[in-house]
Design a protein around this nucleic acid. Structure first.
Length: 439
RNA sequence: GGAGAGGUGGCCGAGUGGUUGAAGGCGCACGCUUGGAAAGCGUGUAUGCGGAGCAAUCCGUAUCGAGGGUUCAAAUCCCUCUCUCUCCGCCA
């Protein structure tokens, strides 16, 4: 959620921002509700003052009072009740509307009307040339019996799969490799230095989060919508939702908490299964395991003070690139335009891996910088102390993919394939696979 | 699923109707003391909203898990929900 005070002072900036993001929201109506709320609140406060003053009159007499006095107190309370009732109904309308106002985009986010306006970097690692016709991951995996979608369809339906054999070992190797990189402060220091960042090198804490979350928490994260893409569990009884990304359960983990400045940044690397209905993607990416209802992911989440938010964002992108370079996978970096970064985002970057079997770049990573947008409703705050002053402010949140395991394995299979249908193992993963060289 | 105990400030913990935004302690900050430090002593130490002021600050209001109720008055009484813990049962 945005800061209403900021919007009061700069309504045009918010209007322009919403337009650029392609979000429709009536800012003037919101300001109207805001004004009404302020008036009602001061009326309620005044009424409460009168009630308190009236009650204070009995303190001396220790409860000795008269019917007339009781009558007056009751009348005041009735008036307060009426005002509060009005306040509540305006508040509800205000709350609904303010949630629709998108976060301000960062200064350097390019304009654009759709993902077609995103800006692609030149390849950072060049696609390799093959002296044979490269197959796609599905052809290879099927032949090697690594993926079984037919049986998964019998049991669970479309867009589910059994992952088997060496592909499982490969996934676990990537998980271990990544966990080791992100909890190694020396590596992080090097990445910080190489990218001329000036942030602290606190290592990432590995996390296995719960996969279900409460509806109102999901809403506070501003990730519940579109609900069509979410799975609800125990609709009547539990009101729980399956997370669509570890960000949803890790970013919300410190809701209603107040940190000391020295506690930040807090960095997590979560390993979790994500669930998505993939509504509206019928017939898209049906081959293989590119787009599944369920997929495993390594996800980074960072809570920081506001001044280092943007550097944390750049740090996460640098880590993503480092990881891709370690696996030696061809990729490019995509700077997403205003229309494509999403409502809660201030800035968004994707990484796309080259898939020779599809002859295309495809998204494997995303990095989202939310400034204080998520933290405001979550009430995740930090106490900051200076000389003789201490204030509490909202933390800034960042999340970014370390590896989406399914897609990463697709990229490995397709880029590391050999003419005879084999797949070499990226060097850094070999120690985690018994030092084997091929799958 | 059954039975019980709890949720108070950064932390611990007192508090069964008005003098409690909340005792006491710890922690933290500043000052005194010291060659310096520790100990000791003193002072201060929540946040949201609205208002006044250049400002330090002051005024009003709300907040003791959440919501509702009783009362002139609720951290304190009643109801509902929620979370944590203990014991039993079931179970990976």
């Amino acid at each position: 959620m945005i800061d209403i005070k900021q919007l009061r002072n700069n309504p045009d900036i918010y209007k322009d921002n919403a337009r650029k993001k392609g979000v429709e929201v009536d800012v003037d109506q919101l300001l109207g509700f805001d004004k009404e709320l302020q008036e009602l609140r001061s009326q309620v406060d005044e009424k409460r003052r009168q009630i308190n003053e009236h009650a204070d009159n009995f303190k001396q007499t220790q409860g000795t009072t008269s019917p007339e006095n009781n009558e007056k107190g009751r009348a005041l309370k009735k008036e307060k009740g009426d005002l509060e009732h009005k306040l509540k109904s305006v508040q509800l309308q205000f709350d609904e509307l303010i949630k629709k106002v998108p976060n301000l985009r960062w200064q350097d986010v390019p304009d654009g009307t759709s993902e077609a306006d995103n800006i692609n970097s030149a390849p950072v690692i060049q696609p390799r040339t093959f002296d044979f016709e490269p197959k796609n991951h599905w052809q290879i995996a099927q032949q090697r019996m690594w993926i079984d979608k037919e049986r998964a369809a019998k049991v669970s339906g479309s867009r589910f799969a059994y992952i088997k054999g060496d592909l499982v070992k490969l996934q676990l190797a990537i998980v271990q490799f990544t966990m080791n990189v992100l909890s190694n402060e020396e590596v992080l220091k090097k990445i910080i230095k190489d990218n001329s960042l000036s942030i602290d090198s606190t290592p990432f804490t590995p996390v296995l989060p719960p996969l279900m979350l409460k509806e109102f928490v999901y809403d506070e994260m501003d990730r519940l919508e579109p609900r069509d893409d979410r799975y609800q569990v125990g609709e009547e009884k539990d009101h729980l939702w399956l997370q669509g990304s570890a960000e949803h359960v890790v970013g919300s983990m410190h809701r209603q908490e107040k940190f000391n400045e020295a506690d930040l940044p807090i960095r997590y690397i979560a390993y979790a299964t994500s669930f998505r209905r993939e509504a509206g993607t019928y017939g898209k990416d049906t081959e293989g395991i590119f787009r599944m209802h369920q997929f495993d992911k390594l996800e980074m989440e960072v809570l920081s003070v506001q001044e280092s938010g943007i550097e944390e964002h750049k740090f996460l992108i640098a880590i993503q690139e480092y990881l891709m370079q370690q696996l030696d996978l061809p990729y490019r970096v995509v700077t997403k335009c205003a229309a494509d970064i999403g409502k809660p985002n201030a800035r968004g970057i994707d990484i796309e891996a080259w898939l020779p079997g599809q002859d295309k770049y495809r998204e494997t990573h995303t990095a989202d910088y939310m400034t204080d947008y998520q933290a405001r409703r979550l009430k995740t705050r930090v106490r900051r102390s200076t000389e003789n002053d201490s204030k509490v402010e909202l933390v800034h949140t960042n999340d970014a993919t370390a590896f989406a395991l399914g897609r990463t394995m697709i990229a490995i299979i397709e880029n590391y394939q050999t003419a005879n249908g084999g797949v070499r193992i990226p060097e850094v993963l070999r120690p985690y696979m018994g030092n084997r060289e091929v799958l």
